[in-house]
Computed example of a mutant assay.
Amino acid sequence: MKFFVLGSLAVTDGATPVDLGGLKQRAVLGYLLLHANQVVPNSRMLDALWDGQPPSTARKMVQNAVSAIRRVLASAEQTCSAELVTHAPGYQLHVAQNDTDIHRFRSLVHKGRDAVGSGAAVRGAHLLREALCLWRGRALADLVEQGTVWSELSAVEDERLTAQEDCFDAELQCGRHREITPELEVLTAAEPLRERLCVQFMLALYRSGRQVDALNVYRRTRNALVDGLGIEPGPELQALQHRILDHHSSLQVPAYA
């Protein structure tokens, strides 16, 4: 079986989608997958599923969901290595790491960063793009649409954004500033307070011959930071603005790109 959380929750048995049942059953499985191979205490599960206000029947509902998930795992036509066990003080979902898209994502990101760090920016960018292509939407998007709000989901989404920023850095090293400008425009609009994205967008615009647009992005970001958080842009962003005004040679595409 393969398990997918980078998008709507999904499980496949070979190439066949598996019916995961109702919302609570899907939520229990999704939460366990976010903590795969870790013991999840009952109290933590109940708080997550009912936003800190579980009803008196909550523990029984989780037990029923666990039983149903075990039946799903047992019904696999192909060999299923996953196992959901009771482990005091809660439950533990044993699953092979390569059977989850979130592990494959993290592994590819790690390899991509290592490649960039060793000077292989082209390979690093390729690996990071491969990792990002595993995403099919927001993590556990179907549960989020039903009102699920977990800190773990925010953390996973931040992993995705950081991987995108790492990928943009690698592609800027490779001279692909024009190719990534449309993506950066969308992301900086969605994440106006994320300064690293702003730096990347300004640099991509400048290298594309769009100095005025790059400076406009700086002004927009500064206004968002001052109005939203009451702070000025950080040193890196301010320094980039000055280098753009000075047409500093350090802003050119690296010679090895």
Rank of each mutant, 00 (worst) to 15 (best):
F105W: 05
K2C: 10
R104E: 01
D114H: 14
W135I: 02
E159F: 07
E171L: 06
A10L: 01
E195Y: 10
R26W: 11
M45I: 05
E159I: 09
C174M: 10
S107F: 14
R210I: 13
F201R: 04
S118Y: 12
A139S: 10
R243D: 08
E183C: 14
P41H: 06
G209T: 12
A255I: 03
S151Y: 05
L161P: 00
Q63V: 10
V144M: 11
Y256M: 08
Y31R: 10
G14R: 13
Y31W: 14
Q164N: 06
L140C: 11
R196D: 06
A257S: 15
G175Y: 03
A189K: 13
S8M: 02
D101Q: 06
R70P: 01
E159M: 07
R243I: 00
R104D: 02
G137L: 02
G147Q: 13
T162I: 14
A190H: 13
A88M: 08
L205N: 09
D227M: 11
P233K: 14
I69Y: 03
M61K: 04
N37M: 13
Q25D: 11
E171T: 08
F168D: 01
Y206F: 12
P235H: 12
A155Q: 03
L229R: 04
L237C: 00
L34I: 07
H103D: 08
C80L: 13
L225Y: 15
I69R: 02
H126P: 11
S118C: 12
E157L: 05
H35T: 09
Q164V: 08
L153K: 03
V18F: 04
E159T: 07
D101N: 07
R104I: 01
I102E: 00
I244E: 08
E179V: 05
Q211F: 06
T181Q: 13
I244H: 13
M45N: 02
C80Q: 06
R59L: 02
S8D: 15
L187P: 01
R136W: 04
C133D: 01
R178H: 08
P182S: 12
F4I: 01
C80N: 13
C80Y: 02
Q92I: 00
Q53W: 08
R138S: 03
V28H: 12
Y256C: 07
P254D: 11
E159P: 00
P254M: 05
H35L: 12
A163Y: 06
Q241C: 14
R104K: 05
G117Q: 15
L108C: 14
Q252Y: 04
W135V: 00
G14E: 11
E171C: 12
L6A: 07
F4G: 00
T148D: 14
Y206L: 11
L29Y: 07
M45F: 12
S250A: 14
E159A: 00
G175H: 06
D142P: 05
A65G: 06
H35D: 09
G14D: 05
L229Q: 12
D101E: 01
D19T: 10
G30S: 10
Q63T: 06
C198Q: 07
L184M: 12
F4T: 00
R210Y: 04
